[in-house]
C-alpha cells in the first residue's frame, strides 16, 4: 500500500474529524432520551463511510483504530476501548462487505453498518460483564440503528454531493 501525501493528509484530517465527532456525540445526552448503555448516534461512522469510499478499506480501518485508541486515551477510560473497537470494527467489516454489493447506496451501507455497530457493542458488553443480560437491549438497539444509520447515510450523502466538484474526490 502506497500512501500519497494527499492521502496521508486526508487520513490525518479524517481521524481528527472522527475524533471530534465522537467527542461531540458524547456531549449529546442521548441516553437521557433512550436509557440504554452504549447507545450512540454513531456520528463518527460518517467518517468511516466517507473514508471507505474515498480512500479504501485499509485506510478506513486505520482511521477507525486510531480514532478508537485516541478517543479512549482522551476519555481516560480504557474500558470504553473494547466497546468502541468491537462496535467500530464490526461496523467496518459489515460496511466493507455491503459497499461491494452493487445496487446499494450510502443509505443501505450506513444502516447495515449502524446495526453491526450495535451488535458489536452488545457483544463487548457481554464479554465485559461475562453475562448475557445485555442481549435484552439488542432488539431496541437494532431498531434504533435504523434511524441512526439513516441519519449518517443522509449526512454522508450530503457530504459526497457537496464535495463532488472538488479534487478531493478525484484522488
Amino acid at each position: 500500500m502506497k500512501l500519497t501525501t494527499k492521502q496521508l493528509t486526508l487520513c490525518g484530517v479524517l481521524t481528527t474529524l472522527a475524533l471530534a465527532l465522537s467527542v461531540m456525540e458524547n456531549q449529546i445526552p442521548l441516553s437521557a432520551a433512550i436509557p440504554l448503555p452504549g447507545i450512540k448516534l454513531g456520528l463518527a461512522n460518517i467518517v468511516t463511510v466517507f473514508a471507505l469510499y474515498v480512500l479504501g478499506p485499509v485506510q478506513a480501518m486505520l482511521i477507525l483504530v486510531a480514532r478508537c485508541i485516541l478517543g479512549a486515551v482522551f476519555a481516560g477510560n480504557m474500558n470504553a476501548l473494547l466497546f468502541s473497537v468491537m462496535g467500530g470494527v464490526t461496523a467496518m467489516l459489515m460496511m466493507i462487505l455491503l459497499s461491494r454489493l452493487p445496487g446499494l447506496s450510502v443509505y443501505g451501507v450506513s444502516i447495515g453498518g449502524a446495526a453491526a455497530h450495535n451488535c458489536g457493542q452488545i457483544a463487548a458488553a457481554i464479554i465485559s460483564l461475562g453475562n448475557t443480560a445485555p442481549l435484552y437491549y439488542l432488539p431496541i438497539l437494532l431498531g434504533v440503528s435504523l434511524f441512526t444509520g439513516a441519519l449518517t447515510g443522509i449526512i454522508a450523502a450530503c457530504l459526497f454531493r457537496a464535495l463532488a466538484h472538488t479534487n478531493l474526490m478525484r484522488g
Partner: peptide
C-alpha cells in the same frame, strides 16, 4: 457511491 436510496437499501 450511489447517493439515492433504492430498493436494495
Amino acid at each position: 457511491p450511489k447517493l439515492k436510496p433504492g430498493i436494495w437499501d
